[in-house]
Design a protein around this nucleic acid. Sequence first.
DNA 1: ATTGGCACTCCGCGGCAGGGAGTGCCAGCA
DNA 2: TGCTGGCACTCCCTGCCGCGGAGTGCCAAT
Lengths: 340, 340
Amino acid sequence: MVEDRRLAVLRAIVEDYVATEEPVGSKALVERHGLGVSPATVRNDMAALEEEGYIAQPHTSAGRVPTDKGYRLFVDRLSTVKPLSMAERRAIVTFLDGSVDLDDVVHRSVRLLAQLTRQVAVVQYPTLARSTVRHVDLIALHDARLLVVLILSTGRVEQRLVDLEDPLTETQLTDLRSRVNRAVVGERIAEAGVALHALAEDVPGADRAATSRVVTAICEAMSDHRSDARVAVSGAANLARYGDSFDTAVRPLLEALEEHVVLLKLLGEAHTGGAVTVRIGHEGPYQELAATSVVATGYGPGEQALASLGIVGPTRMDYPGTMAAVRAVARYMSRILDEA
Amino acid sequence: MVEDRRLAVLRAIVEDYVATEEPVGSKALVERHGLGVSPATVRNDMAALEEEGYIAQPHTSAGRVPTDKGYRLFVDRLSTVKPLSMAERRAIVTFLDGSVDLDDVVHRSVRLLAQLTRQVAVVQYPTLARSTVRHVDLIALHDARLLVVLILSTGRVEQRLVDLEDPLTETQLTDLRSRVNRAVVGERIAEAGVALHALAEDVPGADRAATSRVVTAICEAMSDHRSDARVAVSGAANLARYGDSFDTAVRPLLEALEEHVVLLKLLGEAHTGGAVTVRIGHEGPYQELAATSVVATGYGPGEQALASLGIVGPTRMDYPGTMAAVRAVARYMSRILDEA
DNA sequence: ATTGGCACTCCGCGGCAGGGAGTGCCAGCA
DNA sequence: TGCTGGCACTCCCTGCCGCGGAGTGCCAAT
């Protein structure tokens, strides 16, 4: 019983602190939540909670503030999933439905997520690793220059310029194109790479040089780790709400946003199965970001997670609402990728 | 003579204020610049400059700060173009030379510009309006679904999914592909649209429906105004340096960065011929951004300006250095687009 | 036209007192 | 054993005061 009330007190503290942004005291607590006990009792509970490290006070005789550990307990055991409002569901549908291509889907999603959560949203582009090759196109430009276009199952399009020693004839080009496509269409990029190199080996001598250059370009495009590191970011303006804690929360986060590698590490491994992971403050890999939390999940067609998406923000945030929004957007994105 | 010295005083005030971020007084001025006159003289000049509206004091008995009008005069008549350092030139070359496609060029450029100027950099994607069609590809996916890929001379790739009523045979597809390409390759998108519609008219009855859908998709992709509004942004972290003027300068700017339409309006028309335009504070179209300046120019292959690029930042910035960096990056980008 | 001198203004800073919010503890009560 | 009211205490926040410093404006002298 007592234990139950203590947790209720912790929950109330978290909720109030998130709402008011100010340390919360015992009196305000019993007033705003119907706890049915006196402030003195709550004070005792608070002392116990502080003893256990769930809350802290900025200074003697101030109200209490949740610690990272307190948020953790809140997220794990105390929060109930807050269903999205009807308006929010509608927003998701209308916002994402008009998307025309992958870029568009990603951009719209990240924007939407930022708007829903009022935090900084981050969406990773679907990784190349698990996608299959849909089509390869070779286009002759002027001179001996070739444009190689690689289209993947996720809708991603990569292109590379290739300079040949001699121009190819129309028939050579058609031939090369169809041979390459026969070798790779439908394959995953790992197998496609193998197949391509095999192809380059047993090619008639004359076209050998050209083939090998084209193969190299395709492989390069497929294994391009740069693309795996691509992310879209939106909602930096939402940081403006935290003007007070500029130095501890806003500045380091602004700096991190520029470093896409850092962001990817923050998002972490793409968790599959719809689970939303929450990393609170110091639990993350960077001390400079000890005042920021990450709420993330994976998304992708079917049940496989091709990439991560989520939000970053100060530890003081509305976790239930944020988690619901992140999950909803991830689901909807997965569905769109499914259809395409 | 007197007039000359007054201008020298203004220049000194601007330079000192940009460097120190603090109102500059008469004494410090004569010490740090070899003006060869006494502080009292400078005070008289300052009074005159203030009378004319070029400088102002935050409060009585404080140093002077340039007004927007003061910066304007400085930029127009007093600043000498500061050539880039050798290291900076090298940075531009090494940074941009490894670019593999248009996206990459834009991303690298915007990042580079942010780094050079230590401001927020903005690069608009080349507009579709003046580009020509390089190639159209039609790829049959499963069922009656077609992927239309449109490749433009600037390196931009647009793709659209098209659902047909019935699947096309291989020969139908080849035929359609070659007819479309014959009609549009090398054309500007305006003419290409006309040509396509003409094509859709005189097509054998059976393929008519399919052709018209494909044509519609291509035209849609070409006239997509969304793409014209695409911009890349980088360097938001540089705003962290202005933590002091958070509310007047940083917050509104952060909010503006989210609105790509606003950014485009800020960058303004793509000025041609290498001229760098500077818009200072209130000269811009938004009052909320009265504390921010824009330094922008156009870029594009040859001498035509396909798009704009530039930086935005607080009015208190190093104009000569920023202008030099903006111009240098624009030139280098133009050269890269020239080659491709 | 320039300069040195001088009085004046205003900011920024530290110290100080008063009010308020919140706590910890203790003794009393169910 | 657990809850409650009361009470003293701590600490922040605010406003106030006084001071030093930086900078100005003006004036008389050169």
